[in-house]
Structures are given as C-alpha cells and as structure tokens.
Simulated scan of single mutants.
Amino acid sequence: MRLGSRPPVVGIAAETLDFAREAARDAHPNEYLGVLQATPSADLDGFRDRDGVVVTDILVIPATKSGPTSATMRRHLVPNDNRTVGSIHSHPSGVLRPSDEDRQTFGAGVVHVILGAPYGPDDWRAFDSEGERRSLPVLDVDLPDPESFFDFTQEDIDEELE
C-alpha cells in the first residue's frame, strides 16, 4: 500500500446495513444521513486473513438537518480519522443513483451508500468517490454488543486512570 492510501473497503456488515435501513425508514419521508466508519478486517473474527476494512459503524453527526429532498451535516464535526470511509444517506423517492449534489459531496471518502424507499434488502447501492457504482459485499460479521460499551465498573475506571 502506498503512503497516504487507505486500505480497501471489502464489505459492509449485514447488521450495520440493517441498522441504516431501519433508520432510513424511521426518518421517512425525510432523508437519513450518516458517516460510514470501518474496522480493520484483522480485528474481526472470520476476516483476519483479509486485507482491508469492513464498514461496521454509522455515525450520525449532531445538528444534521434533513428534509424530503436533502440532508446536510456540519462537516467540521465529522471525524478526520482512518475509520471514516464515506457516507450513507437515503432517497425517500426511491431513486438509487446519486444526484449532482450527492456527487459533489462524495469526494470525502471511498464508499458512499444510497438507500431508497421502501428500504428493503435490495433497495440500496454503493458508489465510489466519483459517483460510479461499486461493489460492496454484505458480510456476516459478529459485531460487539453495543451494551458492552457501558459494561465497566468504578474499579475499571480507577485502573485506567492509574
């Protein structure tokens, strides 16, 4: 891999895509918008032998505004780190191709997902930074339980602070 390049995005976790489809349904008739974050394949059981990253998380940026035909986020609040790999948003119209406005925002990231109403298993497409359709396999990945994030004690905190 050359200096400054990103590892390839090898897929999206099925659970992550399901979460996004549900969020898009909940936001309908307004657009849903989030930031895609990835985990190195080497950190995921069953994918340790693959080179690259898997989309495992979606961040919803505070103060994101959404309406029936567009959604905007405060770009300065998007993490500028190696985990951020692209964007995901819905088209309540069901159209599964990027608009000119979408293409203008695709430069930041390597994969961008559009979800279309009615947000079923086949109602989505992935695109590259140029707005061209790309492959993004849906992978059966064991993600950590979100509740485990809060599974700590005061003793754990004290130990971390030492």
Rank of each mutant, 00 (worst) to 15 (best):
P79A: 02
G131C: 06
F127C: 02
D102A: 15
D123H: 09
A20P: 03
L17E: 13
G46Q: 08
S66T: 11
H89Q: 04
G4T: 05
I88M: 05
S70I: 06
M73A: 15
V110R: 14
V111F: 12
P92F: 04
D158I: 08
G67L: 01
L59F: 12
N80K: 14
S99Q: 14
L59I: 09
D43N: 11
G52P: 13
M73G: 07
E162Q: 10
S41H: 05
S90T: 06
P121Q: 04
V111S: 09
R125Y: 04
G11W: 10
V138S: 01
D51W: 14
K65H: 05
E155N: 13
D151N: 04
S148E: 08
I61S: 04
E160Q: 10
E22H: 13
D51Y: 15
D81C: 07
H76L: 05
T39D: 08
E159N: 15
G34K: 01
Q154M: 12
P29Q: 10
P79F: 00
G109I: 04
T105V: 11
E147D: 11
P68C: 01
R50V: 15
R133W: 00
A42T: 12
F47N: 06
H28C: 08
R134W: 03
D81K: 00
E162M: 13
P121D: 05
Q37R: 15
P121S: 09
F47K: 10
L115P: 09
D43S: 13
Q104N: 08
E15G: 13
D151S: 09
V141Y: 05
P118W: 04
E22M: 12
E132Y: 03
N82C: 05
V95Q: 10
L115G: 09
P68W: 00
I157C: 05
D57C: 04
E130I: 09
V53G: 04
G109K: 06
V113I: 15
A24K: 10
V78E: 02
I88G: 04
D140K: 06
S99T: 15
N30L: 08
D81L: 06
S129D: 03
S90W: 01
G46T: 08
G131V: 01
D142Y: 04
Y119H: 02
D158P: 07
D145C: 02
A42S: 12
V138K: 01
V95A: 11
D18W: 14
P92C: 00
H76A: 04
D43T: 07
A71W: 06
A13M: 09
P29T: 03
P92L: 00
P40H: 02
G94E: 00
R2L: 10
R21K: 14
P29A: 03
A20L: 05
T69H: 08
A23L: 14
T56I: 11
T64P: 08
D51Q: 07
D81P: 06
Y119F: 11
R2A: 13
P7T: 01
L139P: 07
V141M: 03
S70D: 02
E147F: 05
I12W: 00
E162N: 12
D156A: 12
P7E: 11
D158K: 10
R133I: 07
T16C: 15
D156S: 12
P62Q: 03
H112W: 10
P144C: 10
F127M: 02
D123Y: 02
G86T: 01
Y32V: 07
L77R: 03
D18F: 14
P92R: 00
D128V: 06
P7I: 06
G86L: 00
D102L: 15
P98A: 14
Y119W: 01
H91T: 00
F106E: 11
N82P: 07
D128L: 08
